[in-house]
Structures are given as C-alpha cells and as structure tokens.
Simulated assay, not measured.
Amino acid sequence: NACYTKKHNDSADTSTIERYTKKKGFANATKDFTMISIVKTKTNYSLMPTFNDFERGPLAIDDDEHILLPNYREGEMAEVIRGFIEIYLKANMFYKEKAELEAEKNNKN
C-alpha cells in the first residue's frame, strides 16, 4: 500500500533508507532488515535475496535470482519471497551472532 508514496531523491546526501530509518550510514540503516530485490522489466520479474554483510550492508545474491514471468500463478511470488526469508533470515542471524561474539571478544582484549 505504500508503493509510490515516497519520492526517491538521488541528489540528496543520504540514501532513502537512511532518511526512512533515521540512521546514519547505509549498512547501519539496513542491518535490522532482510531485504529482497524485486525488479519488474517488460518481460519478467527478477527476485533476489540479499545477505546482510554487517560492514557493507545488504549484498544481492545473484546465484539465488528467481525469474517470474508476468503471468505467474497466484501465490507464486509470495512462495519465492517466503523461501528467501526463511533461508536468509537464519543465515543473517547466524552471522550477526558471530559478529557480536567477535566484538565481545575484542572488547575483553
């Protein structure tokens, strides 16, 4: 319902996601999200999950790209997105915990 309710401003000093989350730095603004790229072209939809690199932010996983034709069956896009969330949410949690443990270890040293 929120599609097209905000305009993107490429000339702004901060990214749209930084302004939306009110956090400085793209990696910091996106660290709490599992992001999925959905691109519509004239011939298909391209869906790609992202892996959250805690230093660089979300990185698209090209190998996991899923292409849907415009006449995809009802519920098919939701199934793809649900699958991405289940896999990458678990992976992101694992790497976030790993990063937190390493930071804790470094703070003790």
Rank of each mutant, 00 (worst) to 15 (best):
A2R: 10
A2F: 11
C3F: 15
Y4Q: 10
K6V: 13
K6I: 14
K6M: 15
K7T: 08
K7P: 06
K7E: 13
N9Y: 09
N9E: 07
N9I: 05
D10Y: 04
A12Q: 05
T14A: 09
T14H: 06
S15N: 09
I17F: 00
I17H: 00
I17S: 00
E18Q: 13
E18C: 05
E18G: 06
R19P: 05
Y20R: 08
Y20Q: 11
T21I: 00
T21H: 01
K22N: 12
K23Q: 08
K23H: 04
K24D: 09
K24L: 11
F26V: 06
A27Y: 04
A27D: 00
A29E: 04
T30I: 08
T30L: 05
D32H: 04
D32W: 05
D32M: 05
F33S: 04
T34P: 00
T34V: 10
T34Y: 00
M35D: 01
I36F: 01
I38L: 15
I38V: 15
V39E: 12
K40R: 14
K42G: 10
K42N: 13
T43P: 01
T43N: 13
Y45W: 02
S46H: 10
S46E: 13
L47H: 00
L47A: 05
L47N: 05
P49D: 00
T50M: 03
T50S: 12
F51V: 03
N52A: 02
N52M: 13
D53A: 00
F54R: 03
R56H: 12
R56A: 07
G57R: 01
L59V: 12
A60F: 14
A60C: 15
A60D: 13
I61H: 03
D62K: 14
D62M: 10
D62R: 10
D63G: 15
D63S: 15
D64H: 09
D64L: 12
E65P: 14
E65L: 07
E65R: 15
P70I: 06
N71C: 04
N71W: 00
Y72F: 03
E74D: 06
E74V: 04
E74A: 02
G75A: 10
G75R: 03
G75C: 06
M77C: 03
M77N: 06
A78T: 07
A78Y: 09
A78D: 14
E79T: 15
E79L: 09
E79A: 13
V80I: 12
V80D: 07
I81R: 14
R82Q: 06
G83Q: 13
G83R: 07
F84K: 02
I85C: 02
E86C: 08
E86T: 07
E86P: 02
I87K: 06
I87E: 13
I87Y: 09
L89K: 12
L89I: 11
L89C: 15
K90Q: 04
K90W: 08
K90F: 02
K90V: 00
A91H: 11
A91I: 12
A91P: 00
N92K: 01
N92A: 02
N92Q: 02
N92H: 03
M93A: 01
F94I: 14
Y95P: 04
K96D: 03
E97N: 05
K98D: 05
A99K: 07
E100A: 12
L101W: 08
L101G: 11
L101T: 12
E102T: 04
E104M: 15
N106C: 04
N107H: 06
K108M: 08
K108L: 11
K108R: 13
